[in-house]
Nucleic acid binder design. Sequence first.
RNA 1: UCUUCAGUAGCUCAAUGGCAGAGCAUUCGGCUGUUAACCGAAGGGUUGUAGGUUCGAGUCCUACCUGAGGAGCCA
Length: 531
Amino acid sequence: MFCASPRRRLSRADRSSPLLNKLGCTLAAFVVQSKQFPVARNNCAKTVAVHVAARCALDWKVRCDGKRRRPESLLIMSEESVTDDLEVTKNTPPVATIAEIGRHEGQSVTLRGWLYNSRESGKLLFPIFRDGTGSIQGVAHVKSVTPEVFEKLKGLTQESSVIVTGKVRADKRAPGGYELDVEDVHVVQRVPESDPYPITLKEHGVDFLQERRHLWVRSPRQSAILRIRAEIMRAAAEYFDSNGFIRTDPPILTPAACEGTSTLFPVDYFGDPAYLTQSGQLYIESTALALGKVYSFGPTFRAEKSKTRRHLTEFWMIEPEVAYMDLDGLMELAENFITHVIESVLKNRAPELHVIGRDAAKLEAIKAPFPKLRYDEAAEMLNQAYKDGKLEAPFEYGNDFGSPDETWLSSQYDRPVMVHRYPANVKAFYMDPDAKDPRYALCVDVLAPEGYGEIIGGSQRVSSYELLSSRIDQHKLPRAAFEWYLDLRRYGSVPHSGFGMGIERLVAWVCALDHVRETIPFPRMLNRMYP
RNA sequence: UCUUCAGUAGCUCAAUGGCAGAGCAUUCGGCUGUUAACCGAAGGGUUGUAGGUUCGAGUCCUACCUGAGGAGCCA
């Protein structure tokens, strides 16, 4: 058996191959011509047969059964094995995914997956299978399958890996709408009773689950969250890619602090000190002045000893940076960007939102423009809230907002709220002062609704060499390490702006999770490095 | 760094200072439509660690360890 790389187009002759009919499966059998396996037009079944599995992923568009399909894998059987394998192919129903099982109603299919759970009622077995795309309940009656299959299924343990064949049947009682009447089962690996799968369908504590994160990701809820995360990352990159941005990723190993504030992870770089990046911002300011509109997308590291539901020590950030963009342009960019990501999740991950019990109506309300508040206005609201007894601590004008302040502010709106023009002295050294009143910085924080706090922080950057130079001195930053950054103001400096968005906080909000640890496959936290 | 809470069976949790318990999981038995199935039975314990108070400590006290939430800081 050979694996073929699916680069060729199918010819008309392939599509009308008699093999399709011969094999009698809707999705899957083709004859392919190639130099490696020359075939005669009308005699191809004897030389090379290609079985295109029904699951999908590759870039082929195959026409069969009147519909376009995207086959996932294909096996080319050698000349010698054609006869035998054709028999096998005849007898093995096409591989299907549970997510798309409805296309096979009334037909026999092969599922490759795991046993999620098993119930039994006397002579009736109800094994529930999952395959990564979803789950489906199988039904096996002692009289409907061979005794061998019945016994195999009866003693099967949770999370054993199985290849199961059966007939798809629509059933009103089934949560997914379909059930599988089991015909045959092949147990790939059986989990032993003596050491059963640790994560049962009952409740578990946070610590227990986190110690077993490598298994926890199999649970329906965690899988759904990771699917939503993937969609958020895809849609985020898509927004910038399709709006003229060039992705330029900054280094992860850096010689010095980017912002001079956060705590960094030191690493030994051939005997010299180096640090894991806490932000790519300074570097993409450079590429923005080279390419105009750029973004970066990658992991960042903060060694702060924060243990809250909003913090990870390793998290992913997407950061756009645009030459000649001012703060107003940046705020518009941020709201359009978030709107696009939310729309994509609603469009492409509705089933997953349902699995995790997320109220989609709350996300449907997320449309640009977002409410915008000056820092002063927000401060006034917080003072009033304190007077009304809605906040425990009074807000001190001139400070940055605390977590309870952010939570209260964001809970006042049904969409993200943008707070801009903070006092310059509580913000980073690279933020441009407002020309109308230099006590304020041209910066913006985007606070997610429902109390999820800051998801975006951005600003217009200082473009004056003199100002930046004096700021670096004021903040007592190591000047030598910032010479290259000052060069950006020596040579063709322009106003420019950018923001950073933390992926995990966005995922936590979109999924309405209690904690960011569930938003990333393997969270890294203050007290957690395993697995 | 500060602060609050928690640690008992594989898991989730009970137990007034007085015999160490339940549900789930595992094993065995029963059930022809179960939805975290159900019913019956069995096995399963150095109560985080080290001290202390007490006739007697899972329970009270001290220290430490581990975990969780919050503050600060941040995305």
